[in-house]
Amino acid sequence: MKYSITVTLKKDVLDPQGKVVENTLKNMGLNSLKSVRQGKYFEIEVEEKNEEVADKEVTQMCEKLLANLIIEDYKINKL
């Protein structure tokens, strides 16, 4: 089974990289831009065939390593 995971900073945590990208895009004349948040993207493949077990394991991967839950949120998508 394949998953994609995005990890982003929580809304109330300052994202200075996102801010710089945002300002640059605005300076390039892309004026409709409202805001940018930068994050991380992972593609993960697991051997497990049982969907429920695999889902659980991927959630664990997110919570134990891929995201720091103090400052980051994660979103899991099945590919």
Binding site: V13, L14, P16, I70, I71
Partner: peptide, 11 residues
């Protein structure tokens, strides 16, 4: 230790 260390504000 609780908390975390973010990127420096000025990058």
């Amino acid at each position: 230790l609780k908390g975390t260390l973010l990127r420096n504000k000025n990058l």
